[in-house]
Simulated scan of single mutants.
Amino acid sequence: MRNKRLIIDIVVLLLVILFLYTAVSKFVDFKGFTYDLNNQPFPNSLTPILRWLVPLTEIGIVLGLIFEKTRLLALYASLILMSLFTIYTALVLFDVFEYVPCSCGGVIKNLTWPQHLIFNLFFVVITLLAIRVNKKNSSNHLLYNQLQ
């Protein structure tokens, strides 16, 4: 039981660091982040929404991960967001888009696209692991409480 709790705590900590770091980096260089969004292969009409939605979503996920009652929901939100980033990265690697600046925050922006893919896949896998462990942990608690 302790090992399961430790796995969840480590994954949550890594996700909190990742999302908090990238969100703050985007706000610190908000002008650069907005510029990068305008150079994405998506319509520029999405930029006013995405420039707020992406970092605020990352901060919302961080807040959800911090609290036990919202942790599982935040883990699912993390999985969805990281999966979207991973799919986008894979599309970049398959040359689906003509041009692709990275609008990631901080030093993550310096990764190559193959490194981005590995980085994103790592977070997808550990998030899936945390969700699975959390579900098993929750069902064990329910069973234990019913037996009492």
Score class of each variant (00 low, 15 high):
103 S>Q: 05
74 A>M: 06
38 N>H: 12
109 K>Y: 00
22 T>H: 04
66 I>G: 00
115 Q>K: 12
96 V>G: 06
135 K>N: 08
52 W>K: 07
45 S>W: 11
41 P>I: 05
91 L>R: 15
91 L>K: 15
15 L>H: 09
81 L>Y: 00
139 S>I: 12
124 V>N: 12
130 A>E: 03
128 L>V: 15
100 V>E: 07
114 P>E: 04
117 L>I: 08
108 I>N: 03
90 A>I: 14
123 F>M: 10
6 L>G: 05
30 F>M: 11
24 V>F: 06
9 D>A: 15
112 T>Y: 03
46 L>E: 05
18 L>A: 08
114 P>D: 02
119 F>W: 09
132 R>T: 14
74 A>E: 02
33 F>D: 00
42 F>S: 06
45 S>F: 09
119 F>S: 09
37 L>S: 01
27 F>Q: 08
8 I>L: 03
97 F>W: 12
111 L>S: 01
68 E>V: 14
57 T>F: 08
134 N>T: 12
31 K>W: 00
92 V>K: 06
59 I>E: 00
88 Y>I: 11
103 S>M: 06
94 F>W: 12
74 A>D: 02
131 I>C: 04
52 W>L: 14
141 H>D: 11
32 G>P: 07
63 L>P: 02
108 I>R: 00
136 K>G: 00
22 T>C: 05
88 Y>F: 13
141 H>I: 15
71 R>H: 07
116 H>L: 07
21 Y>F: 04
5 R>G: 00
41 P>K: 13
62 V>N: 02
116 H>K: 10
83 S>T: 13
121 L>R: 13
117 L>C: 04
106 G>K: 07
99 Y>H: 14
11 V>P: 00
56 L>H: 05
98 E>V: 07
56 L>P: 02
103 S>W: 03
147 L>Q: 14
144 Y>Q: 13
91 L>T: 13
30 F>G: 05
135 K>M: 06
125 V>A: 14
106 G>R: 09
100 V>D: 04
40 Q>Y: 06
36 D>N: 13
145 N>A: 14
32 G>T: 07
83 S>F: 04
54 V>Q: 01
74 A>T: 07
38 N>C: 09
146 Q>M: 12
70 T>P: 02
143 L>S: 10
46 L>H: 08
20 L>T: 00
16 V>A: 04
146 Q>P: 00
128 L>M: 14
9 D>V: 14
99 Y>C: 03
62 V>Q: 06
64 G>R: 09
138 S>H: 11
2 R>W: 12
